[in-house]
């Protein structure tokens, strides 16, 4: 558990980066600090491992005031991942990952062995261990950064915009990877980002901060989207927050209906209804329009996912019928937007 008690940080030039922050990060959760530039989110993060010391107030890690701990000792027990990964260019990937274990007195052999395990854990092939950071892609470097932060198995992980420098597709992969790792490792993670979508996607709780170092709202993502504390949070959360908040609504009550199908490759003849093309495994392949032409399908909705997926499947489908599949990708049926909206409406009432 990490606790900020009335923490304020003023820099020598007079700017106040953090202003009376009171906040508790629960153990075993991902807490995201999000906000525009100059809101003090990185400063707050860096006060946890004493890269910056507060002007006033107290930061506690597991009940202990960090100011009472010698900084290097404190830092060796806290993982830290930053935007550019901060890998040592002059050391191999394996030695980078082994850094903290070596600092804390492990033998080289044991540290390297641990490093190799961690590379596997973050999904990197073992042979990358003997390369230098410059030989890796941005996404791979970030994975190494995460592996390095985890090397000494610290209970707390600080992540400062770790995925901001990679392209959106890679970023999404890294976010999934982080969630998977967290499910396995159960760390206390503080994650800083300026990207509200990232915050909502990975945070158990999100702290929205405002320029000048004020905490605007500290809440689970669903609450942030549905009940923003003020105009600033509403504005920061963005335009389609109503739609995005559906990510946190489960889809129970959505009825799945049958749909007419045609086997892939069979001759298509005209019919008044839209029919779904499926392959031999019953996986959806597209639609046959009433005039007999074949058109690609919309997004697929997997049973059990949030209701946002169901609505999107319906809205993106050329036939207006959202295709529902099971976990294996086999056709389960279809839903309409009206049905989904009815369920959402009835939840409100």
């Amino acid at each position: 558990m990490i606790e900020f008690r009335d923490v304020t940080k003023r820099f020598d030039d007079g700017t106040t980066a953090v202003n009376g922050l009171d906040l508790v990060v629960e153990a075993g959760t991902i807490t995201v600090f999000v906000g525009p530039s100059g809101c003090g989110k990185t400063t707050s993060l860096r006060m946890v491992n004493r890269m910056i010391d507060p002007t006033s107030g107290t930061v506690l890690v597991d009940g202990e005031d960090v100011l009472g701990v010698d900084p290097p000792t404190l830092r060796r027990g806290i993982g830290y991942v930053i935007q550019q990964a901060g890998l040592f260019p002059h050391r191999t990937v394996l030695d980078n990952v082994a850094t903290v274990p070596l600092l804390t007195g492990w033998t080289r052999r044991k540290a390297r062995q641990r490093a190799a395990e961690l590379l596997e854990l973050v999904g990197l092939p073992a042979e990358l261990g003997h390369r230098y950071p410059v030989q890796l892609s941005g996404g791979q470097q970030q994975r190494v950064g995460v592996a390095r932060a985890l090397a000494a198995d610290p209970p707390v992980l600080l992540m400062d915009e770790p995925f901001s420098a990679v392209d959106p597709v890679v970023r999404e992969g890294l976010q999934d990877e982080l969630l998977r790792l967290q499910a396995e490792l159960d760390k206390t993670i503080v994650f800083v980002t300026h990207d509200i979508d990232e915050a909502v996607r990975i945070g158990d709780k999100v702290a929205v901060m405002r320029t000048g170092g004020f905490l605007a709202q500290y809440a689970p993502p669903a609450e942030l989207l549905t009940r923003p504390a003020d105009d600033f949070v509403a504005g920061f959360v963005g335009k389609d927050r109503g739609y995005r908040s559906l990510s946190f609504v489960d889809s129970s009550g959505v009825e799945v209906a049958e749909v007419a199908t045609v086997a892939e490759g069979s001759a298509s003849e005209s019919s008044p209804d839209w029919r779904l093309v499926v392959d031999a495994d019953k996986r959806p392949q597209g639609w046959v329009a009433p005039d007999g032409s074949v058109v690609p399908g919309g997004s697929l909705y997997e049973v059990g996912a949030s209701i946002r997926g169901a609505l999107d499947a319906a809205l993106s489908s050329p036939s207006g019928l959202g295709v529902v599949v099971d976990a294996g990708g086999h056709l389960a049926g279809v839903v309409t937007a009206r049905q989904v909206l009815d369920v959402i409406e009835s939840r409100r009432g």
Binding site: A17, G38, T42, R46, I52, E161
Partner: peptide, 14 residues
């Protein structure tokens, strides 16, 4: 070129 040396723990306020 002579440029200011990056500060280590100074003022990054994200």
């Amino acid at each position: 070129r002579e440029e200011p040396v990056p500060v280590e723990s100074g003022g990054s306020t994200a």
